[in-house]
C-alpha cells in the first residue's frame, strides 16, 4: 500500500515539474546553430540526402561505433546470462497459422530489410531499422519451427566480420585522410544516387548485418531458454 502512495506522490511531483516547465516553453521558430549547420552543409559535406543518416553515420560516426559496441555487449550479456538458466525441453509448439506464415513471409521481409539498409542515405532508414527488420524475419522462422535453434557459427562470424569491417573502414580514413571514419575516402558522387555519399552505404550495410545477427542471436537464446519445463 505504501508503495502505491509513495509512487503516486513522486509521479505527481514530477508531473507538476513537467507542467510548470512546459508553461514557460516558447515554441522555437528557427533552427539552433548546430542544426542550421547540418541542414546547410550536410549534403555538400557527406553527399547523403537524408540528413539524419548524415549525422548518425558521418558527423557522429564515432558515437555510432560506440552504440554498436553497446548493442554488442548487451547481446553478449544476454547470451551469457541465459546459459545460467536451465534450457527448456521443447519450445511451445506454434499454431498452423504461424508455421505457414513462417514459410511464406521471411523472404519478402528480408528483401524489405535489405532495401531499408541500402537506401539509408536516400530515404528514412539505414542500418539499425533495416537490421531489425531482417532480424524479425529470423524471429518469425524461429517461432514457426518446433525445434530449439542450435549454435550458429554463421551468425557469429557475420557479427564479428561486420564489427571488424566497421573498425577497418574507420582506420582507412585515418590512414589516407588523417581522420578516423572520414567519409570521403570514397567519392561522394552525385547526391540522390544509390551509389553515392562516400562510405555511408558501406557502413549502413555493416551496421545492418551486425544488428540483424545480434538480434537474431538474442532471439535464438530466448527461444532456447523458454518453453515447457
Amino acid at each position: 500500500m505504501i508503495r502505491t502512495y509513495v509512487g503516486l506522490i513522486i509521479v505527481l511531483a514530477l508531473g507538476a515539474i513537467v507542467v510548470s516547465s512546459l508553461s514557460n516553453y516558447s515554441v522555437p521558430l528557427e533552427l539552433g546553430s548546430t542544426g542550421h549547420n547540418y541542414t546547410q552543409r550536410g549534403v555538400d559535406d557527406t553527399g547523403s540526402v537524408n540528413l539524419v543518416t548524415a549525422v548518425v553515420v558521418a558527423y557522429r560516426g564515432l558515437d555510432t561505433l560506440g552504440e554498436v559496441v553497446v548493442l554488442f555487449s548487451a547481446s553478449t550479456a544476454v547470451v551469457l546470462i541465459l546459459t545460467l538458466i536451465p534450457m527448456g525441453a521443447n519450445p511451445t509448439p506454434s499454431s498452423s497459422i504461424v508455421s505457414f506464415t513462417a514459410g511464406v513471409l521471411p523472404g519478402a521481409i528480408v528483401l524489405f530489410g535489405i532495401y531499408i539498409i541500402s537506401h539509408g542515405h536516400l530515404s528514412p532508414g539505414g542500418g539499425f531499422p533495416g537490421g531489425a527488420v531482417v532480424a524479425s524475419a529470423f524471429l518469425l522462422i524461429m517461432l514457426g519451427s518446433n525445434t530449439i535453434p542450435g549454435q550458429s557459427r554463421l551468425l557469429a562470424s557475420i557479427e564479428s566480420l561486420a564489427g571488424l569491417t566497421f573498425g577497418l573502414l574507420g582506420f582507412w580514413g585515418m590512414m589516407t585522410l588523417g581522420q578516423f571514419l572520414n567519409n570521403k575516402v570514397l567519392p561522394v558522387g552525385s547526391p540522390g544516387k544509390l551509389l553515392s555519399a562516400g562510405i555511408i552505404p558501406l557502413i549502413s550495410l555493416v551496421i545492418g548485418a551486425k544488428v540483424a545477427s545480434e538480434l537474431s542471436g538474442v532471439f535464438a537464446s530466448y527461444r532456447k531458454a523458454g518453453g515447457e519445463k
Binding site: 533552427l31 539552433g32 548546430t34 542544426g35 547540418y38 541542414t39 550536410g42 540528413l51 539524419v52 548524415a54 549525422v55 548518425v56 557522429r60 558515437d63 555510432t64 552504440e67 553497446v70 548493442l71 539505414g126 539499425f128 544488428v211
Partner: peptide, 13 residues
Amino acid sequence: DPLPQALVLTSIV
C-alpha cells in the same frame, strides 16, 4: 532539426 532525430535513433537502439 535532424540532430534530435539522430539522437533518438541511438536512444532507441
